[in-house]
Amino acid sequence: MEHGAERHKQTLRRALLEVRRGLTPHDVREAAAALAGRALELPELAGARTVAAYVSVGGEPGTAALLDALRARGVRVLLPVLLPDNDLDWGVYAGPDSLVGVRHAGRMALLEPAGERLGPEAVTEADAVLLPGLAVDGRGTRLGRGGGSYDRVLARLERAGADPALVVLLYDTEVVADVPGEPHDRPVHAAVTPSGVRRFHDPGGR
């Protein structure tokens, strides 16, 4: 069963990435502006002191405007640093000039925060975690790219007893009927797309 679910995930990933590759720079810019506006209205971000986020690359829904708006609000924004084993360290976002391009083996260049590394556990201090993804379904099951970095982040939050708001940033077409889930998957609380916010049942009562 698990092999079938993994095959389904791979097929879904390929299809979704193909759609993203077809987006023009204008499409990406327009979506990024709308996405930032929607995300900034989230109550989960309104009271957040620390938000773990990420720098979008390629055709991903753009996060630059959102990062700057959060920082302007006085939010401490943590950004990931990819480690050799695919785990994530974290650093504080200090504006666009604080980002450096880093090329990791077999991956496109990522923009990562310069400056002090806070350690993988820093994410447990976040009031909200903005997650990259390729899709989400009606149960809040997120489809990632398959590298496992954010599976580790979510497991770390679980071990620490941390319960931040988990929010995935997507395009409108990426809210789908079904994402094959596995027992360890931790559902997200909300998905933000350029046209609105989709909320999911949270057993924790958020």
Rank of each mutant, 00 (worst) to 15 (best):
R145E: 04
R38V: 14
P61K: 03
S195W: 06
E121N: 08
A34E: 15
R13M: 11
S195Q: 12
S149H: 09
L110F: 14
G204W: 04
R198H: 15
L83T: 02
A65E: 14
A36I: 07
R159T: 15
L82K: 01
P113A: 06
V153N: 02
L88Q: 04
V92P: 00
A126C: 10
P25G: 11
H184W: 13
A39D: 01
G22V: 08
T193G: 10
E112C: 11
A33G: 14
R186G: 05
L166M: 06
L82A: 10
A135E: 05
V192D: 02
T193Y: 08
L67S: 03
S98E: 00
D85M: 03
A135C: 14
R49W: 00
R199L: 11
V19C: 07
A31V: 01
A69S: 13
V77Y: 00
L79V: 10
E60M: 14
T141C: 15
G91A: 11
P61H: 04
A5N: 15
G95L: 07
A122M: 12
V175L: 15
A65S: 11
Y54Q: 05
D185A: 10
V77L: 01
R13V: 13
D89K: 13
V175T: 12
A65I: 07
R199S: 14
A34Q: 15
R145C: 10
A46F: 04
R73M: 08
P96A: 11
A114D: 00
G4Y: 04
A94C: 07
V176G: 09
P84H: 00
G196R: 09
R186D: 04
T124V: 15
A155E: 14
D185N: 06
R156K: 13
G119C: 12
H201G: 15
Y171S: 08
A64Q: 11
T124D: 03
G106D: 03
H8L: 13
G106F: 05
L42Y: 03
A69F: 03
L67R: 01
E182G: 14
S56H: 06
R13Q: 09
G161M: 09
P61D: 05
P113R: 01
H201D: 13
V175S: 09
M1P: 13
H189C: 05
V100N: 00
V102D: 00
E2A: 14
T50W: 00
S149Y: 05
G140V: 08
G205M: 00
A160T: 13
V92Q: 00
A64G: 12
G140M: 06
M1I: 12
V55E: 01
L23W: 10
G58C: 09
E112F: 07
V92T: 08
S56R: 04
E60H: 13
R199K: 08
A52Q: 02
H104Q: 03
L67N: 03
L166H: 05
L82R: 01
P120L: 07
E6W: 14
K9P: 09
